[in-house]
């Protein structure tokens, strides 16, 4: 049974917690032992969010060790770069091409890093870097909130142990009925984008 440590990072309101919940549910359904834990901080909106998800035959710690995550999914670019040290050497980074500038950038005291700077952070660890247009695709499909389904689709292409229909069933359990169609389409697009990359 393969072991998989997945770190999800981004900004509050991007649907990270729901995504990590769905990964765990899907892993449990596929017969894995699984644990997850989130770090949210104090802010109701706009704060940094990190979610650790682990699956394997037996999982002890809910927290992933630094330099040990097999996959890092960055819902937001800067937060991806910040947590890159958690990725294992030659692990896989899925980076959603969306910038949400922190307040210090808005007020002009700090600068948001350029894409090449974020890439060069990740290149220190791995050459398996996927820059994906999740937010853009979700918006085109009709709902920016389907970003998490898109990124789960990306993940599904990298973790064949969980079947596509199980992923979709778990999505169906957690996503509101009226948004399900868009979310399933976003999932398919994410899966396809990684396979074609």
């Amino acid at each position: 049974m393969e072991k998989l440590d997945i770190l999800l990072t981004g900004v509050g309101g991007q649907g990270i917690i729901l995504a990590s919940d769905i990964i765990c549910q899907a892993a449990l359904g596929a017969g894995y032992d699984t644990k997850k834990t989130d770090a949210l901080g104090m802010a109701q909106r706009g704060g940094a969010v990190v979610s650790h998800v682990r699956l394997g035959e037996k999982v002890w710690s809910p927290l992933i060790k630094e330099s040990a995550a097999d996959i890092l999914i960055a819902f937001e670019k800067l937060e991806g770069g910040r947590w890159c040290g958690y990725l294992r050497p030659e692990g896989t980074a899925i980076i959603n091409n969306q910038a949400i500038p922190p307040l210090s950038v808005n007020t002009g005291t700090e600068k948001y890093p350029a894409d090449k700077d974020i890439r060069s952070i990740f290149r220190q660890r791995t050459k398996h870097i996927y820059f994906v247009e999740g937010t853009q695709t979700a918006k085109q499909l009709g709902d920016a909130r389907a970003l998490n389904a898109y990124l789960l689709g990306c993940l599904s292409a990298l973790s064949p142990a969980i079947k596509v229909r199980d992923w979709k069933a778990r999505l169906g359990e957690r996503v509101p009925k009226k948004a399900l169609e868009i979310n399933l389409a976003a999932f398919d697009r994410g899966r396809k984008d990684i396979k074609n990359a």
């Binding site: 901080g41 802010a43 704060g47 922190p102 890093p113």
Partner: peptide, 15 residues
């Protein structure tokens, strides 16, 4: 991993 020293922080904020 060496992070750039000027990577902006993201402290919690009022919404």
């Amino acid at each position: 991993v060496r992070l750039p020293t000027d990577l902006p922080k993201r402290p919690p904020v009022l919404c």
